[in-house]
Write a protein that binds this DNA or RNA. Structure first.
Length: 246
DNA sequence: CGCGTTTGACCGGCGC
DNA sequence: GCGCCGGTCAAACGCG
């Protein structure tokens, strides 16, 4: 790729990031769409990678019946990532990506069905619902708050990596709060919450049915703190992570 | 004893 | 309305 082309691409990426930030209030990925360092597990190191292209934001303004936009991107790491997809969509795109050449490829996918995962999208909806709760008793309101909290989806992204261990060391401390065997899978899905006070970030970990060597990790929400200090040796990344708390 | 995991029960969303 | 399913809760348990 020539330097001119690279420069144009960089400018394009910058423009797209600006537009996404405007539309969503924040970027679903860190600036320049580089993946934050997540730490390492044994010899499996999850390093930053650069996305060479991404779907233009205009293609993200989908209507309900539209086919989700999908862009397949070469990676510098053998990781596969999708953002904010629900499980079915994620599985669909993973299947299609595998057809296109396996873990060397990365897919980004967004559709209107995914928009709810980007925080602000449902804000007007949830605020309307909250407005009608005046008549409810305390217990009901409390329960309602719990339910509504569930409805407000945090930004999510997931990635796939090949690893013997399920829980990759990403610098944060997690507490397992559930495990579930989901339909049509042999491997249980584990649910983790960040142990930090006031941090509601969650992650799900499961193994791919088609290839048990692959671990799918889905993060939901944004950390309100830095990674644990006992992971300080991953210094190069900490400044990056401090900015985005993914 | 404190913290993390396990696991069955429960709940809400969704499709039919 | 009903049943299925994914996600969460919380008591019991294990471990250092």
């Amino acid at each position: 790729m020539s330097s001119t082309t690279q420069a144009m691409l960089n400018q394009s990426l910058f423009d797209q990031e600006q537009e996404m930030q405007t539309q969503m209030g924040f970027l679903p990925f860190p600036p320049s769409l580089s993946f934050p360092l997540l730490g390492s597990c044994n010899n499996q190191s999850l390093k930053s990678f650069t996305i060479n292209s991404l779907p233009h934001p205009s293609s993200l303004a989908a209507h309900e019946n539209e086919v989700p936009s999908s862009t397949t991107i070469n990676l510098t790491e053998t990781l596969l990532l999708s953002s904010a997809g629900n499980i079915k969509q994620r599985e669909d795109h993973i299947t299609s990506s595998a057809d296109l050449g396996g873990p060397q490829l990365l897919s980004l996918q967004r559709s209107s069905a995914n928009l709810w995962a980007w925080g602000e999208t449902n804000e007007s909806l949830s605020s309307k619902k909250m407005a009608g709760e005046d008549h409810l008793g305390v217990a009901a309101v409390k329960m309602k708050k719990i339910k509504s909290r569930r409805k407000v989806r945090e930004p999510r992204f997931c990635f796939k990596t090949m690893s013997d261990i399920d829980v990759l060391d990403d610098g944060y401390k997690w507490r397992k709060y559930g495990q579930k065997v989901v339909k049509n899978t042999q491997h249980p899905r584990s649910y983790y919450r960040c142990t930090q006070d006031n941090c509601r970030v969650k992650k799900r970990v499961e193994r791919l049915a088609e290839d048990p060597r692959m671990v799918i990790t889905t993060y939901e929400g944004r950390h309100v703190h830095s990674p644990s200090h006992d992971q300080e040796d991953s210094s190069q990344a900490s400044s990056h992570l401090n900015n985005f708390f993914w």
